Amino acid sequence: MEDTNNIENITFTEKLKNFFIHPIQIFAQYNKKRFYALKLLIILIITAMYGAVQSIMAKPYLQKYYDDLTKNMSSDQASIVKSTTSVISSIPVIIITTIIIALITIFIASFVYMLFIKAAKGKIKYGQVVSIYTTAYMATVIGLIIKILYMLISKKPMNISAQTNPNYINTILKSYDIFTIWQWVLMAIGISTVAKISKKKSAIIVIILALILICIVVVPLMLKK
């Protein structure tokens, strides 16, 4: 049996190394304890930073998009559209909205994961799922940091086409990338390790919820069509 005391006492450098090459050792400590406060804070800070930088870089592109969108409207209609978009695209609103969405996503997704895990006969508590989810989410955080650096260097926004031309492909590409897939893989490993279910069952749970998330992203576009 793996010595969980040794796992809990490993250094930060070792934990960072394990995150990339041996994540099972990271997840094994959640069998007895739950750790997610610091990770949650990091997630909120980085997602807020990404939202702010993306908003700043996208502003000239969106300005042109809204100018084209409102050119055939009456002056009153155009004024309402522009004032509304100006408010919702302001940095404070973007930051607050991003943080709220991240919190809702993490805690609701963790709850749904818990239900699926219990349905698969896995033994797990809600706090453990949140710990797994926030750890797996670090993959997405790494992606966001890389994207922030890219935008600051290139002076270009990420996935602007998803806002100016919101079709199925652009919307999915905006929401899901290689870092999201990495997050899903880590999630499957974490569920299998902590809930003591097979890797096959944990992979099926993650795939089902990933498909549900994709549907949530795509369905609004279908309704608009």
Rank of each mutant, 00 (worst) to 15 (best):
I106C: 11
I56E: 12
C215L: 15
A203K: 00
M158N: 10
P157H: 08
S161T: 11
D3S: 11
I100R: 01
D3F: 09
V185E: 00
V129R: 02
Y168W: 11
Y61A: 08
I142R: 01
M114L: 14
K156F: 04
N31Q: 15
M114C: 08
W184S: 09
N31T: 13
I191Q: 01
V217F: 09
S86A: 14
A58G: 05
V141E: 04
S161V: 10
A188G: 11
K15R: 15
M187I: 12
K125C: 05
I7E: 11
I24V: 11
K33W: 02
Y168T: 13
K17N: 12
F116C: 14
T140F: 04
A136I: 03
L40F: 14
Y113P: 00
K59W: 10
M49V: 07
Y61R: 02
T11V: 05
I132M: 06
K199T: 08
Y66I: 07
I160F: 03
K156I: 00
Q128Y: 06
S175N: 14
N72L: 06
T105H: 12
P92S: 08
K33I: 09
Y126I: 10
I214Y: 00
L211T: 01
E14M: 10
I56N: 07
V112S: 01
G190H: 06
W184L: 10
W184C: 07
I148D: 02
V53W: 02
I80D: 08
N5Y: 11
N18A: 11
I43C: 06
V217R: 10
M57K: 10
S161K: 12
L221C: 03
D67H: 05
K200A: 10
N167Q: 09
K17G: 05
F12M: 14
V53L: 09
I205D: 03
N167W: 06
Q29V: 13
I56Y: 10
V130H: 01
A102Q: 11
V217K: 15
Y137L: 12
M138R: 01
Y113F: 15
L223W: 09
M57P: 02
K224A: 15
G190F: 04
R34T: 15
P166L: 08
S161I: 09
L62Q: 06
